[in-house]
Write a protein that binds this DNA or RNA. Structure first.
Length: 581
RNA sequence: GUGCCUGUAGCUCAGCUGGAUAGAGCGUUUCCCUCCGAAGGAAAAGGUCGUUGGUUCAAUUCCAAUCAGGCACGCCA
């Protein structure tokens, strides 16, 4: 809707351009609502933003912008204020086209194709397949899935990917744990000290042991470890992965692809990655310096290793890729995995990791840069941890005592939608306090309720109008004359709806899903306010049985509002509620 | 020791590539249901945007120091 306005501003700016050193694109032009509505419907600060680059005075540029804006039919008036703000008022007729665009496009109103169907790989969750997903994974899963939805909105071809760490010591430990439970289930006695520090003693391993017996009976019981280990490794990974997929489904997350670390290694991708880096001169044998944080009496010792020169690509220190016993490090596997992604054709990648992985960001970015000759790029988003509270009191979790909360616990307790909302309603860099009691309260302590309530109220109006139907066909509303919507609350709502695609685009580009619930809360607030105005001012009621034309105009605004709320909730993976009773 | 993140109203948080008088909710105080859902709305009070410098027409936003809190840093995965 705003592209014509942006275009005119861009043309005005180019008038001052003296060199071709840079290009002014419409995306660079900021349009927003002034804090004070009396200044106008929208403003741009482009004259000031570009005055330095264009070497012109902001006022002169603003005058040129004004001249071009005035040539547009939808502009009522333009004024220049302060150091160079250009404020303008839109004609009533403009709102007709805004509402109609939403009525016609539906949830596609916020979509654009500015990313040209480019492929992008979003890797998230990637939990070790050694147990059920826990609460930390919940934020990861929701964050990753909403980012994926947003990226699709702006025209990316998104692959949602889960990397399975299905080899290494922790898998062997899992298999050994399974074997102990297997023995136990077959009547053998096991003692607590047989579970070493790195093993898994959770009850879920007992369940897997039963499944193992169902299929294999007691045939491993008296066999040596090298005979059962490979089979039990595979068996336990498969079982854990099945559970992980169920857990993810319970909060509405479906992956497009699962990629196995073992499969990558089998393809000799590690060797290939190493070759590639060697060709670039990024591999050498050396000794890493002692990390400063390690105290003197620690058992750290110098060791010669094969190293990746990641400092060349912005990392703090070079990274080991081969252990002294000759086997690969975990990072070597990651080099292989990211080379695999690059070879699959992804130039853009996103990774979602918990804040405790912050030390890993630079080396991953270095790896992608080095392996792709700087052609591919990975953006890592770290999210802070979630504290779980029970009515204000923190719930302590410990793996040892078995008092850790699983993702399934959370979903069972508060449901998919509340879980998802809580996980993305805050900036990813901010810790979340997730209170089980407050999360399901029906008040403003629970903002999701407020948004759902607005949606349900709109459905309620439609029910009253149609005698029972919670929706109205947009086609019945397109011809309504929306220029009669003149109350400041109505116009305020329309202005907010106008900017919805801007918010979606901004949230997607910044990889900041929390902007969506923030926006929806504002929409809900504007709507509730309008609703209550109708209580005292009967001329603002949505349904006026004596005036069909007026009623349709108002219902079209409601339908547009409903569409945008629904769209926003869809992006968040939350199901809108047609009634709350 | 180094790196990353956080610090905005009593509390929990927004604040979009620097923009005009810094915004919500909770809590507190006062109003608004014979009327489409009061699980709502209107209004008041509440701030030296951790501190100090710097960059410029303009800094909560950028830069540098500094204080406070969180996380991380070895051949773990």
């Amino acid at each position: 809707m705003l592209s014509a306005i942006r275009n005119q501003i861009a043309i005005a700016l180019r008038f001052f351009q003296q060199t071709d050193d840079y290009s002014i694109s419409c995306d660079d032009i900021c349009l927003d609502q002034p804090n004070d509505p009396s200044r106008g419907d929208l403003y741009t600060n482009a004259a000031m933003m570009f005055s330095k680059r264009l070497r012109g005075s902001p006022i002169k540029i603003a005058e040129k912008i004004k001249e071009h804006l005035c040539s547009l039919e939808v502009i009522e008036s333009v004024s220049i204020d302060g150091p160079g703000f250009v404020n303008f008022v839109l004609k009533n007729i403009f709102w007709n086209s805004v509402i109609n665009k939403i009525l016609i496009d539906g949830c596609d109103y916020s979509s654009c194709n500015c990313s040209n169907n480019e492929r992008i790989n979003v890797e998230f969750v990637s939990a070790n397949p050694t147990g059920p997903l826990h609460t930390g994974h919940a934020r990861n899963a929701v964050f990753g899935s909403v980012i994926s939805n947003l990226l699709e909105k702006i025209g990316y071809d998104v692959t949602r990917e889960f990397y399975i760490n299905d080899q290494g010591n922790q898998i062997k430990a899992l298999a050994r744990s399974l074997f102990l439970r297997y023995k136990e289930a077959l009547g053998g006695t096991i003692t607590a000290d047989q579970f070493t520090e790195d093993m898994y003693c959770g009850d879920y391993v007992k369940d897997t042991a039963k499944e193992l017996i169902d299929i294999y009976g007691d045939r491993f019981l008296n066999k040596s470890e090298d005979q059962w280990l490979p089979i039990l490794c595979k068996f336990s990974i498969d079982a854990m992965l099945r559970n992980i997929k169920l857990d993810l489904a319970s909060i509405g997350v479906v992956m497009d692809q699962y990629t196995s670390e073992a499969a990558i290694c089998k393809k000799h991708m590690v060797e290939e990655a190493l070759e590639k880096l060697k060709d670039n001169g990024d591999i050498y044998d050396g000794i890493l310096p002692r990390p400063k944080g390690i105290s003197e009496d620690d058992d750290w010792e110098e060791r010669p290793q094969t190293l990746f020169k990641s400092t060349k690509y912005g990392d703090d220190v070079d990274r080991a890729i081969r252990k002294s016993d000759g086997t690969w490090t975990y990072f070597a596997g990651d080099l292989a995995y990211h080379l695999d992604k690059i070879k699959r054709g992804y130039c853009k990648m996103v990774g979602v990791l918990g804040a405790d992985h912050n030390g890993y960001v630079k080396r991953l970015q270095a790896a992608v840069k080095a392996l792709s000759d700087d052609k591919a790029e990975i953006k890592i988003r770290l999210y802070q941890l979630v504290n779980f509270l029970e009515d204000g009191k923190p719930i302590k979790m410990s793996k040892r005592s078995g008092t850790f909360i699983t993702l399934k616990d959370v979903v069972n307790r508060v449901g998919k939608d509340v879980t998802r909302y809580m996980m993305i309603s805050r900036h990813h860099d901010v810790m979340i306090d997730f209170d089980f009691v407050k999360a399901v309260e029906c008040s403003m302590d629970n903002p999701l309720f407020y948004i759902q309530y607005a949606y349900a109220r709109i459905c309620s109006v439609f029910r009253n109008y149609t005698d029972g139907n919670t929706d109205i066909d947009s086609n019945l509303l397109i011809n309504a004359d929306k220029t009669s919507l003149k109350d400041e609350s109505e116009v305020g709502l329309m202005k907010a709806l106008l900017l919805w695609p801007e918010y979606v685009k901004g949230a997607a580009k910044a990889l900041e899903p929390h902007r969506i619930p923030t926006y929806l809360q504002n929409i809900a607030s504007l709507f509730h306010s309008l609703w209550n105005k109708g209580k005292t001012n009967t001329t603002l009621r949505f349904i006026d049985k004596t005036n069909e034309a007026e009623t349709k105009a108002r219902l079209s605004l409601l339908k547009a509002t409903k569409t945008v709320i629904e769209d926003g909730l869809n992006i968040m993976g939350i199901t809108p509620m047609v009634e709350m009773r």
